[in-house]
Design a protein around this nucleic acid. Structure first.
Lengths: 137, 137
DNA sequence: GTAGAATCTAGAGTGCAATCTAGGTCAAGC
DNA sequence: GCTTGACCTAGATTGCACTCTAGATTCTAC
């Protein structure tokens, strides 16, 4: 498509968001958009820049572990217009907390794993092998 | 069980690893242990401390995103005894890289999310509402 | 105007990682 | 001895998030 700079086909949107046409249709069924996506005369989806911006935010939220159900709740809040900002804020704060917790967990695991790597590295370089993996906490 | 300090029932192991008896049987089917878990006369699993230590490491690897298939490869390497330390090292180094990448991604997303939170917080406090969610990248 | 690519819908299938079910057996305390 | 709870196997089911299929329609480029 891309005849009109602000009328993007599903393929265009897939390309710029990295989401895949199947995923985009799925997102629509799941009510994750901020509006009903309008259609061309022939029935094909016509997205605009704002849809893409929203999808990019969705990508961030999804990649950082927000479940579809929560994203849908957020989309519904935004869709229903001004007045529920405290709820949106609470939802985002909750997610921010979850992401921070996840990073902390990963960092803790990373230390353990890095410790194992260091040990193996030393033993591989030494040609020493026995007991390397012995599971010491 | 816990009659013998080093002969733990599946329930005991579930309690100390947080893994659930179903998951422990599943792990065994998936060959994630370092040995065939021995059985009592009556056919019940008898774990020992080393199994638990291994499971705790498995938990760290799983929680940090290692797929079951990779964990199985690692378990197989460890099972097959000394001699393949370079392979184990490579596997762990690869995983360490993956975890660092994941942390970096999460940190990047966190910044976006935190930005949204700050914006919403300001607007909620101001009583300002319009345009808050406007998806600006 | 026509070929070939892209899109449409509804619904089925996939992959991962458990988690649960049914129909039993085993073990610990009274 | 008997009850009660823990445990056994094999296999079915779940939940999440896509991902693909089939068969029809639309759009773009020549």
């Amino acid at each position: 498509m891309s005849r009109d700079a602000d009328r993007l086909s599903i393929g265009d949107v897939a390309r710029v968001t990295g989401l895949g046409v199947h995923a985009l249709r799925f997102f629509e069924r799941e009510e994750l958009f901020l509006r009903p996506i309008p259609r061309t005369a022939g029935g094909q989806r016509a997205y605009d820049r704002a849809d893409v911006e929203w999808l990019l935010l969705c990508n961030r939220l999804r990649e950082s572990g927000m479940p579809i159900a929560t994203l849908r709740r957020f989309a519904h809040l935004v869709r229903s217009g001004p007045g529920n900002e405290p709820e949106r804020l609470a939802l985002l704060e909750e997610h921010e907390r979850a992401v921070r917790d996840r990073i902390a967990d990963l960092t803790a695991s990373l230390e353990i794993i890095h410790g194992k790597v260091v040990t193996y590295r030393r033993h591989v370089q030494d040609g020493t092998a026995a007991g390397v993996w012995s599971p010491s906490p």
